[in-house]
Design a binder for these strands. Structure first.
Length: 294
DNA sequence: CACGAGACCTGTTCGC
DNA sequence: TGCGAACAGGTCTCGT
């Protein structure tokens, strides 16, 4: 069954997809007739000016200082940390958090500004980076010390050095529901509401299981589940990406998320929805039965 | 300190 | 059709 999400889904895979599209895409195929200046990569481009349409979008510093310091800087790289987009430029770094509805586009400067464009950087080559964010939750930082913004983030789930043992130690310290712990960015960076539900389903763990009730085996399975759904998300989001239309189709492959009442793909039991930690949570009551706490 | 509720926002969908 | 309520991918702050 097809289901539509009204907006983008800026969890880790979506951010990863955007970051990839903002890198210099020397290794990507282009549509025929697409001119050089329309290519999305921004590495090496120099900022000629900036515009801010919603004051709160710029978290730090104040607008005047930002405008002064960013002008003339050159984009050195585009990377990701958790759900943050990280863009080193000279001695400072520009960071974005897309929150619920943010998006970043690259386009020619003569393209019409779009509704909800909050922060725009004009490059000297005639292109522009636009931060669009309908709900105004997104934020940008211009920081000398990147750690002042990213310092509290937990490890990267896709970092191969991260072990289930390490996550067991982190989750086991708390009695909060594992669903809530998965969303805690200081324990593990990048997992959001969709992928937490999907990962718990793959690991066959009930979302209300207290962290200190998890077994080492379950923690191992959960980290594996997180990695699997993130990889799937990155693949699906990337599948239909060509920078003109950036809309993945992972939403058509959800196993539990937004499938309330529909049959579990494994056992057929109707998927349940309930609110945990103020977030909607979806799970199979049969496959993810609560195993108790010893 | 841990936890839950409320705040921040706009747009879309649902139910009457 | 119209209209208000409910809901949405995230995180911070404040009160208990």
């Amino acid at each position: 069954m097809r289901r539509r999400l009204s907006l983008k889904m800026p969890e880790l895979p979506e951010v990863e997809t955007i970051v990839c599209s903002l890198r210099n895409p020397a290794d990507r195929a282009f549509a025929e007739g697409q001119s050089l200046r329309e290519r999305p990569g921004i590495v090496g481009r120099q900022v000629a000016g900036a515009r801010l349409n919603w004051a709160k979008t710029l978290a730090l510093p104040d607008w005047q200082q930002f405008q002064q310091e960013v002008t003339g800087q050159t984009v050195q790289a585009v990377t990701r940390r958790g759900k943050f987009v990280v863009i080193p430029m000279g001695t400072n770094t520009l960071l974005f958090h897309l929150r619920m509805s943010g998006d970043l586009r690259v386009e020619p400067q003569d393209a019409a500004e779009q509704k909800h464009d909050r922060l725009l950087l004009d490059f000297s080559d005639g292109t522009r980076l636009s931060f669009n964010d309908p709900r105004k939750f997104g934020r940008a930082w211009w920081a000398t010390d990147v750690q002042s913004v990213l310092g509290d983030l937990g490890p990267e789930p896709l970092d191969e050095g991260l072990t289930g043992q390490e996550m067991y130690a982190r989750w086991h310290r708390s009695s909060r529901a594992i669903k809530t712990l998965l969303l805690d960015q200081s324990l593990l960076a990048g997992v959001g509401n969709i992928y937490s539900d999907e990962a718990l389903f793959l690991a066959r763990i009930h979302p209300l299981t207290p962290g200190n009730c998890l077994t080492p085996v379950q923690a191992e399975a959960l980290l594996a589940g997180v990695r699997q759904v993130l990889h799937e998300g990155i693949e699906r989001n990337g599948a239909s990406i060509d920078w003109v239309y950036r809309g993945g189709d992972f939403q058509n492959y959800f196993r539990v998320y937004q499938r309330t009442g529909e049959p579990c793909t494994v056992c057929g039991t109707p998927i349940e929805r309930r609110v945990i930690g103020q977030r909607s949570s979806h799970f199979c009551p049969h496959c993810q039965s609560f195993t108790g706490c010893s």
